[in-house]
Amino acid sequence: MSKPSGTNIALGVWTTLVFLFLFAPIIVIGIYSFNGGRLLTAWDGFSLEPFTAIVDRPSVRHAVAVSLQTAVVAALLASTLGTLAGMAMARFPGRWTGPFTLLLLLVSVTPEIVDGIALLPWFVTLGQDWSLLPFNNGYVRLVVGHSLFATAVVTYIVRARLIGLDASLEEASADLYAKPVATFFKVTIPLVGPAVLAGGLLAFTLSLDNTVISSFINVSGTTSWPVYVLSSVRSGLKPEIAAVSTILLVFTLLVLGLVAWVLKRSGSSVTDTMAAS
């Protein structure tokens, strides 16, 4: 291993500072969720009031509930679409893979603001001009908006997992006279299970955090939690926003820890899978 030379010490100090920088605002939010003051930015003594305030404010609870419900449905949808697409890309590549990869790439790099402003008129066209009434529903709009990037993420993860696995297990199944459909359900699906779970949980956290698309396609009555927070940036941030965020942060970390654990147990590299997204 390298000797502790001057350069290495300087690099180590620099890296430590970078980590402090990365965690500074998260730590601040954690501390300020115990702010007893009326406004979030002005500290006024330690208090548990922000946490008890959540219970008293139905609008906060409703926004969090909208977000959680949307995230579950969006994650299920993205996992289904992404798993099928990822398996197709890994096991049945052909002339279609190129254009499809391009589509996924475009979905991943397009700024969210463009998705948001494109979806808003599209939902109006579908829901009002063409009378497809579900698209006037706030939940449907949120689920559709959140499922796009998440589908691409799940596809990448499932594809990476399957490419890393030998196809010989599926070939063996075929050699043993299993029909392609039987092989698919009895061999391929169990093999991709961990990747699907990891991708689905990531889709869940992505949906939970989605601010930009949600704020454009928002329908009053189904305001999601990040949209509620963004609108209170203008009207005045209250300490209970930090309190809810701290709870959600702990929750997200637990979910991510679960992803890491599942991937580790299934033997694929956590770093590679998550970096791929």
Partner: peptide, 17 residues
């Protein structure tokens, strides 16, 4: 960890700072 925590909340953290 910061990348997967809420973008909006981290930015609000800087607003507080």
């Amino acid at each position: 960890v910061p990348y997967w925590t809420s973008f909006l909340i981290r930015t609000i953290g800087w607003k507080v700072i």
